Amino acid sequence: HSHMSHTQVIELERKFSHQKYLSAPERAHLAKNLKLTETQVKIWFQNRRYKTKRKQLSSEL
């Protein structure tokens, strides 16, 4: 499990705020920019979407 830097997370968050789903080319581009693997980016987005979904569910209770 590799640790992401604060800067990388900020960039991922910024991208996520604009779009929740990335196409393969977008993911490849973002990964390259942030010096991450595409898998890391993919998993981060999956986890981030899951967290957002959970938060929405709990706020509706």
Score class of each variant (00 low, 15 high):
1 H>E: 09
2 S>E: 08
2 S>R: 12
2 S>D: 10
3 H>K: 13
3 H>L: 10
3 H>S: 08
4 M>F: 13
4 M>S: 00
4 M>R: 01
4 M>E: 00
5 S>M: 04
5 S>T: 13
5 S>L: 05
5 S>N: 07
5 S>W: 05
5 S>A: 03
6 H>N: 08
6 H>R: 13
6 H>W: 12
6 H>P: 13
6 H>V: 10
6 H>K: 13
8 Q>I: 07
8 Q>H: 03
8 Q>V: 09
9 V>A: 06
9 V>D: 03
10 I>L: 12
10 I>E: 12
11 E>H: 06
11 E>C: 14
11 E>Y: 06
11 E>R: 05
12 L>V: 01
12 L>K: 01
12 L>P: 02
12 L>N: 00
13 E>D: 03
13 E>K: 06
13 E>G: 02
13 E>P: 01
13 E>Q: 08
13 E>R: 06
14 R>Y: 05
15 K>G: 02
15 K>H: 12
15 K>T: 11
15 K>F: 14
16 F>Y: 15
16 F>N: 02
16 F>I: 02
17 S>V: 08
17 S>E: 13
17 S>Y: 07
17 S>G: 06
17 S>H: 14
18 H>F: 09
19 Q>R: 10
19 Q>H: 08
19 Q>D: 05
19 Q>N: 09
19 Q>W: 07
20 K>P: 09
21 Y>G: 02
21 Y>K: 04
21 Y>I: 04
21 Y>Q: 04
22 L>D: 00
22 L>N: 00
22 L>K: 00
23 S>N: 06
24 A>D: 05
24 A>T: 06
24 A>H: 08
25 P>D: 14
25 P>S: 15
26 E>A: 06
26 E>Q: 06
26 E>D: 05
27 R>D: 02
27 R>F: 08
28 A>N: 05
28 A>H: 10
29 H>C: 13
29 H>G: 06
29 H>Q: 14
29 H>K: 14
30 L>K: 00
30 L>R: 00
30 L>G: 00
31 A>L: 02
31 A>K: 00
31 A>N: 01
32 K>V: 10
32 K>N: 08
32 K>H: 10
32 K>G: 05
32 K>W: 06
32 K>R: 10
32 K>L: 13
33 N>G: 06
33 N>D: 11
33 N>W: 14
34 L>M: 04
34 L>N: 00
34 L>S: 00
34 L>Q: 00
34 L>K: 01
35 K>V: 04
35 K>S: 11
36 L>I: 04
37 T>H: 04
37 T>C: 05
38 E>K: 04
38 E>V: 11
38 E>A: 10
39 T>M: 13
39 T>V: 11
40 Q>L: 06
41 V>S: 01
41 V>D: 00
41 V>E: 02
41 V>I: 11
42 K>S: 06
42 K>A: 11
43 I>W: 06
43 I>H: 09
43 I>P: 00
43 I>S: 06
43 I>D: 07
44 W>T: 00
44 W>V: 01
44 W>K: 00
45 F>S: 00
45 F>T: 01
45 F>E: 00
46 Q>M: 11
46 Q>A: 12
46 Q>T: 05
46 Q>Y: 11
46 Q>R: 14
46 Q>C: 12
47 N>A: 09
47 N>E: 11
47 N>L: 12
48 R>Y: 03
48 R>F: 04
48 R>C: 07
48 R>P: 01
49 R>M: 04
49 R>Y: 04
50 Y>T: 11
50 Y>L: 14
50 Y>R: 15
50 Y>D: 08
51 K>L: 11
51 K>A: 13
51 K>M: 12
52 T>W: 15
52 T>S: 12
53 K>Y: 08
54 R>D: 13
54 R>S: 12
54 R>W: 06
54 R>Q: 13
54 R>M: 12
54 R>I: 11
54 R>A: 07
55 K>L: 14
55 K>P: 12
56 Q>W: 11
56 Q>G: 11
56 Q>K: 12
56 Q>E: 12
56 Q>N: 11
57 L>K: 14
57 L>Q: 13
58 S>R: 08
58 S>T: 11
58 S>L: 14
58 S>I: 10
58 S>C: 15
59 S>V: 11
59 S>G: 14
59 S>Q: 12
59 S>H: 09
59 S>D: 14
59 S>L: 09
59 S>E: 14
60 E>Y: 06
60 E>K: 07
61 L>V: 14
